[in-house]
C-alpha cells in the first residue's frame, strides 16, 4: 500500500473550507477561493509554511520586510486572532471580510476601535491617541511641537469623550464615528468586490459551486 497525499493533507494549519468561510463572511465561495490564491502568495513570500508571518505582511504592505509601522503592527495583531504569532487562512479571510464593502458598519466601527485601543484596555486613552499621532508624524517626517500635538489630542478628546472620564469607550466611539463617518473610510476596501478578477486562477481548480 502506497502513501497517497490527498489534497487536504497539503492544506496548511488553520486552513478552513471555503464554504464555511463564505457562510460567515460577506465573500462568496469563489471569492474565498480567490483569497486563498492571494493567501498562498503572501504566506510563502519569506517562509513557505502556509502562514503569514509579520515580516511577510510588512513586505506586502511596504515592499520592505523590515519596515515597522505602529498601525501595520496593530493590523497584524488583530488579524492574528489566536495570538500565536502568525495569520492563518481562516483568520485572514474573516478579518478581510470586515473590510468588504458589504460588511456591517458596526463591525467596521468595532474593528477601528480595537485598532486604536493600543493596549487593549477596552478604552482609547489620551496617551494612546497622542502616541498614534506621534507615530504618524514620525512616519511622515513632519515636525510639530509637543504643545501643538497635545492641543489636537485635547480637542479630539473634548469632542469624543462625552462622559468626560478621560478615556473613550466603544459607545462614545460609535457616537463620534456617526458624527464623523469619514473616520472609518479606511475600513472599506472596494477592491474586495473584484477579488475574483484579480486572482482568477481558482476558476480552473475550484471544487465547489457558488450557491449564489
Amino acid at each position: 500500500m502506497g502513501c497517497v497525499l490527498t489534497k487536504k493533507s497539503r492544506r496548511p494549519p488553520g486552513y478552513e473550507e471555503p464554504t464555511v468561510l463564505a457562510a460567515e463572511t460577506p465573500f462568496t465561495v469563489s471569492e474565498v477561493e480567490a483569497l486563498y490564491e492571494l493567501f498562498k502568495k503572501l504566506s510563502s513570500s519569506i517562509i513557505d509554511d502556509g502562514l503569514i508571518h509579520k515580516e511577510e505582511l510588512q513586505l506586502a504592505l511596504f515592499r520592505n520586510r523590515n519596515r515597522r509601522n505602529l498601525f501595520a503592527d496593530r493590523i497584524f495583531d488583530l488579524f492574528d486572532v489566536k495570538r500565536n504569532g502568525v495569520i492563518e487562512f481562516g483568520e485572514f479571510v474573516r478579518s478581510l471580510g470586515i473590510f468588504h464593502p458589504n460588511a456591517p458598519v458596526e463591525d467596521k466601527i468595532a474593528f477601528a476601535f480595537r485598532l486604536y485601543d493600543l493596549r487593549q484596555t477596552g478604552f482609547i486613552e489620551w496617551d494612546e491617541l497622542k502616541e498614534m499621532v506621534l507615530a504618524l508624524l514620525h512616519e511622515s517626517d513632519l515636525v510639530l511641537s509637543d504643545d501643538f500635538i497635545e492641543t489636537i489630542v485635547n480637542k479630539t478628546f473634548s469632542d469624543a469623550d462625552t462622559k468626560g472620564d478621560g478615556k473613550i469607550d466603544l459607545e462614545e466611539w460609535k457616537e463620534f464615528v456617526s458624527k464623523n463617518p469619514s473616520l472609518i473610510k479606511n475600513m472599506t476596501l472596494p477592491y474586495l468586490k473584484d477579488i475574483t478578477l484579480a486572482f482568477p486562477s481558482f476558476v480552473i481548480s475550484t471544487e465547489v459551486e457558488d450557491s449564489e
Binding site: 492571494l38 503572501l42 509601522n69 489636537i152 480637542k155 469632542d159 473616520l183 477579488i195
Partner: peptide
C-alpha cells in the same frame, strides 16, 4: 485651522499604508 483638526481624522488619513497593497501583483 489646526485647532479644529481631529486626531483620528489625521490618523485614518495618514496611517502610512493601505491594505490595498496586499493585492498588488
Amino acid at each position: 485651522k489646526p485647532v479644529s483638526m481631529n486626531a483620528f481624522e489625521l490618523i485614518s488619513r495618514a496611517q502610512g499604508f493601505s491594505l490595498e497593497n496586499l493585492f498588488e501583483k
